[in-house]
């Protein structure tokens, strides 16, 4: 009786070892906070491991085209994953919107930003940080918001542009720019703005920031890649995503 149970134990150990894979994720800078929590839950519940690189989506695109070892892309937009799929660099049928980004005008100091964004019309500030609209969806949304508000032309001499939304946040958090358009996810903890003052820009003021994910060619045969995307759709992950201030499709 003893021997078979030992065998079962050894086999179980072995198969657990064989099925636990590592997946390489390329993650948009604005999703750095939530992905950390999601990866911890993912590793705990599936036994797989996930290695996260965060950065600008355009940079990831160039790296993926040139053979970077990423297996899953969590993009800051919906265009890049679509393009990768068209070019045969992402596995077709795996693309989906994992989060819809929300924009916030934020200052680390209380009382600087009002709840209507009127500070942009009247405010006396020297610098307004936003992500480079040429390359970053959150920057584009910020420009659309100011155009909708009629403040874009007046404010553009005060722009300082972050390379991505993480750097934009850093410009504001360090006080070098008095306020800036950041991702709501960067300043939200457990469903509310954690510090300072913010205007949560109504979603109607800019085109929706759809953030799509896809399995890349390198991850085609990695079960952990598919498992991660499945986990990203789970209720548990969705609750984390919502808690960081994203909308869900």
């Amino acid at each position: 009786m003893r021997q078979p149970s030992l065998l079962v134990a050894v086999l179980a150990l072995f198969s657990a070892g064989a099925s636990a894979e590592t997946v390489q994720l390329a993650v948009a800078a604005n999703f750095a906070g939530p992905v950390k929590r999601i990866v911890a839950d993912f590793e705990q519940s599936t036994g797989h491991k996930a290695v996260v690189s965060t950065g600008a989506t355009g940079k990831f695109y160039a790296q993926i085209v040139n053979g970077a070892p990423f297996e899953v892309l969590l993009s800051a937009d919906d265009e890049t994953p679509a393009r990768l799929e068209r070019e045969g660099r992402a596995q077709s049928g795996t693309r989906f919107t994992y989060a819809v980004g929300r924009l916030a005008l934020w200052s680390p100091n209380a009382g600087v930003v009002d709840g209507e964004g009127a500070v942009l019309k009247t405010g006396d500030f020297r610098r307004l940080a936003l992500a480079n609209p040429k390359v970053a969806p959150y920057g584009q949304a910020a420009v659309e918001t100011m155009k909708a508000q009629g403040t874009h032309e007046r404010l553009s001499p005060r722009f300082v542009l972050g390379e991505n939304i993480a750097q934009t946040h850093q410009f504001v958090a360090s006080g070098n720019a008095e306020l800036g358009f950041v991702a709501l996810s960067q300043v939200t903890r457990d469903g509310k703005v954690a510090e300072g003052s913010a205007w949560i820009v109504p979603a109607s003021m800019h085109a929706p920031i759809r953030q799509d994910a896809a399995v890349l060619l390198r991850g085609k045969d990695n079960p952990a890649a598919a498992a991660f995307l499945a986990f990203l759709r789970s209720d548990k992950a969705r609750a984390v995503i919502r808690g960081f201030g994203y909308d869900l499709p």
Binding site: A56, G58, K59, Y61, A62, R127, A129, N132, K134, V135, F159, V160, L161, G162, E163, F171, N176, A177
Partner: peptide, 22 residues
């Protein structure tokens, strides 16, 4: 730098922007 044209957008940053924008 803050990537301001004519103030702080030097050639190396401009190249980076072009690459980012594909």
């Amino acid at each position: 730098g803050g990537n301001i044209p004519g103030q702080t957008r030097v050639v190396s940053v401009q190249i980076y922007d072009h690459v980012e924008a594909l």
